[in-house]
Design a binder for these strands. Structure first.
Length: 188
DNA sequence: GGTGCGATTGCA
DNA sequence: GCAATCGCACCA
């Protein structure tokens, strides 16, 4: 069995974790014991309580409690009443921060999950994973092998235009040239 | 207790 | 271009 990224991996600020997550392999063990794997190619950092684009901006609520936990767990929320979005919680207990996983490509079969909602569907992640361990038996990350010199593109985050100056912060990280990058055709 | 809307997607 | 669809945040 391959190595899992340890809890300490998540115990840094969200932007650092986000950058480091590119090329890592998202792993999900299904009830039938099959294991799905996909290389992360697009993520976004939500960096703290002052980040106006973050769900935690207005403080702790029933929805976002997972963001306030110590790094190493999942934060899953429903968006537009239809889709789920999967985040890796980062940082220390009490400080709300997370990395939204937006797109992955499968190193095995080349199937891509482009977009946070589609990623959750592809990996069969739903609200029951909110607060679940990201170093657990059903959900974890493996190191992966992104070439160190593989270019990483930084852009503004998608769909947070309401967030004032925070909307313009370049907290979206994409593996340059990845065909699986999601978002509006327009790349900001 | 009522209301407005979103860290999106798919289809016209 | 826009409907789908619902939990949650906010106001009363």
């Amino acid at each position: 069995m391959k190595r899992r990224l340890p809890r300490e991996f998540f115990a840094r600020d969200a932007a650092a974790v986000a950058r480091d997550l590119l090329g890592r392999v998202l792993c999900r063990r299904l009830p039938d014991r099959r294991v799905l794997r996909g290389r992360l190619v697009e993520v976004e950092a939500y960096v703290g309580p002052e980040d106006r684009a973050s769900h935690a901006w207005r403080g702790r609520t029933p929805r976002n409690v997972a963001m306030f936990e110590a790094g190493g767990i999942a934060y899953v929320f429903r968006v537009y009443g239809i889709h789920f979005c999967l985040n890796a919680v980062t940082g220390r207990q009490g400080f709300p921060a997370a990395v939204l996983l937006r797109a992955a490509e499968s190193p095995i079969d080349g199937v891509s999950a482009s977009g946070p909602g589609r990623l959750c569907r592809a990996f069969s992640v739903d609200a029951s994973f909110d607060g679940a361990s990201f170093v657990g038996p059903d959900l974890w990350l493996e190191p992966g092998d992104l070439a160190p010199d593989r270019a990483v593109q930084r852009t503004a985050r998608i769909g947070v235009d309401y967030a004032g100056a925070w909307a313009r912060r370049r907290l979206r990280f994409v593996v340059a040239g990845s065909p699986d990058a999601s978002g509006p055709r327009r790349l900001r």
